[in-house]
Nucleic acid binder design. Structure first.
Lengths: 324, 324
DNA sequence: CTGAAAGCGCTTACAG
DNA sequence: CTGAAAGCGCTTACAG
């Protein structure tokens, strides 16, 4: 069986209380005792049981992360940064892939509550569910406005949409088409769309937005778009995977990029940048978002509910490649 | 404060023992009592504390996953599948990004032990460390042989290397160059290399293997390769990211693919396939690997240490695109 | 069918 | 500087 604190105490010739004190560096302990305890711990390969410790302290140092899917480059990188920063701060991460399904999100949330996580970071399109279950559980939402009581951290989607559209206009595009996800989902991408449409109107151009179903095979939709918009000379895709599909469709049709058609994407993940270095895109500061989200969450964990910033939007950056 | 089992008991007018029995569906409880208990739990929004339960049962249903980096498409997808399957089987996943650093792996492993995980799935290049700390902790390695006592699950790397090389030869390539990671790392990619070299020799061709440092900026190395190997008419890259770098370098130099040069990668992740659908590659069965790894791990968790398969190699598949 | 008691492995007032 | 006792929130023999 695994050794426990009593085993250590017996070997060191002290009480379990003393061992605990050594473990926690708490109160006065003579150097000699300390050493004996350390030696005993090493001798029997003792590691404290964090379950027991957490049970007593009512603090687990566990954070739950709910994302749609760690396969997606954006979420994969988000998970990486969040986990790394958590570890740096002494927290551990329970990973949950919700596939954007409400039923899964609910189950995960209940699981996290049962496991006494100190807080939750969530990327979810389903409003309300977090609020409902919450009951004092600190939550921070990433990039999605969830409810009045939940802080959001994201990037400046309106600015991103504006930059993308203006870049295309500045390069002389007249007929710019925007591709976005379904409008019903209250995603942050809606702000990108809004910015696109505002800027287009400002410039006396008619906005044309195509909606593609979520995580569908984009090719089919993109192909239809090409058929229906033969005059398009610029495409602003609301994420890089859609932009990649556009690039592929253009290649298939022998459309010269960027001469006949300019394409800009959104997200600018490391993975996509390394696979498609030519793609012009709007880069989100994933690491910064992660940092901010954790910072706010840990404030809430420490009971500091008062001055939590309700909404934090970090700046985006244009990465200009050869597709524009 | 959070309600506990005593609060539920008081409201339902029964003992904590009975509440626990209802919770665990254990022993005989009258329907009436059951109902009263359920109602009480709902009334005060009670969720059992899994910490306490785990402490008693000496079973957490927690699995640790150590991967280099969830940003990488291969590991991101691996994490997704492993987490999904774990959830399906009632397990939860603690995510650890080791960046392939031995010191981090060691710290993570200790953290996992302290948190009483039931088992660990690890992708690591650093042999030995797991073995050292292990002390009865069930571990399964993915794609990397770690030690005699740790089962490995992976794909058939030799077959993959063979298929890749034969495909290029079959298409008429005479001068095939292979790009791989550093040989010192005992990665499974070494088997891909071995297969490449064996097949080349069999066909009376001279194998030429380039080693690129891990996670470096590949472009520079690839560029040198192009300079040094002007006659190369086929390149077999040991992963898709390297293959993508080759594609980009070829584009930069105006080299016609596949006519002047044919390129095949390795991994075949969803992400890379969706971004570079034209890339020919050897696809690893990530979901199947995940399933097998968990299956074996859970066997070990259940104390079934006897007939654990030492090595499991799942079949790979050629995905033929337009780069060959 | 139900309850009181002991214990999982810790930590922390309290006392000395 | 150190220890005995109580308790974190559960579960499970044991007894009735």
């Amino acid at each position: 069986m695994k050794p426990n604190i009593h085993d250590v105490a017996k070997i060191a010739g002290v009480s379990p209380t003393t061992v605990s004190r050594v473990l926690n560096n708490r109160g006065y302990i003579s150097e000699k005792t300390k050493e004996r305890v350390y030696k005993a711990m090493e001798e029997i390969n003792y590691f404290p049981n964090d379950l027991a410790r957490s049970l007593f302290r009512k603090r687990t140092n566990l954070i739950g992360l709910i994302i749609p899917n760690s396969s997606n480059p954006f979420f994969g990188e988000l998970a990486f940064h969040i986990e790394s920063i958590c570890t740096l701060k002494g927290y551990k991460l329970l990973l949950c892939n919700s596939l954007n399904r409400k039923d899964k999100e609910e189950k995960y949330l209940e699981m996290l509550i049962r496991n006494q996580v100190d807080g939750v970071i969530a990327v979810t399109f389903n409003r309300g569910i977090l609020d409902y279950h919450k009951q004092n559980l600190p939550i921070v939402a990433i990039d999605h406005y969830l409810s009045n009581h939940i802080p959001v951290v994201g990037s400046d989607n309106y600015a991103g949409g504006k930059k993308a559209t203006e870049l295309l206009l500045g390069k002389g595009c007249k007929h710019i088409v925007h591709i976005n996800g379904p409008l019903e989902l209250e995603t942050p991408a809606n702000l990108r769309r809004k910015a696109y449409e505002d800027v287009m109107k400002e410039h006396g151009r008619k906005p044309v937005t195509y909606e593609v179903p979520f995580h569908q095979n984009y090719q089919e939709y993109i192909s239809r778009l090409f058929d229906e918009q033969p005059n398009a000379d610029g495409i602003f895709a609301s994420d890089d995977l859609i932009a990649a599909a556009v690039l592929n469709q253009a290649k298939k049709r022998g459309i010269d990029i960027p001469n006949r058609l300019k394409v800009i994407g959104y997200d600018g993940t490391e993975t996509v940048q390394s696979l498609l270095p030519d793609l012009t895109t709007i880069q989100q500061p994933i690491e910064l978002i992660s940092k901010k989200a954790i910072e706010i969450l840990l404030k809430a964990v420490d009971g500091d509910f008062n001055d939590l910033p309700r909404e934090t939007y970090l700046p985006v950056q244009v990465l200009e490649g050869k597709t524009t």
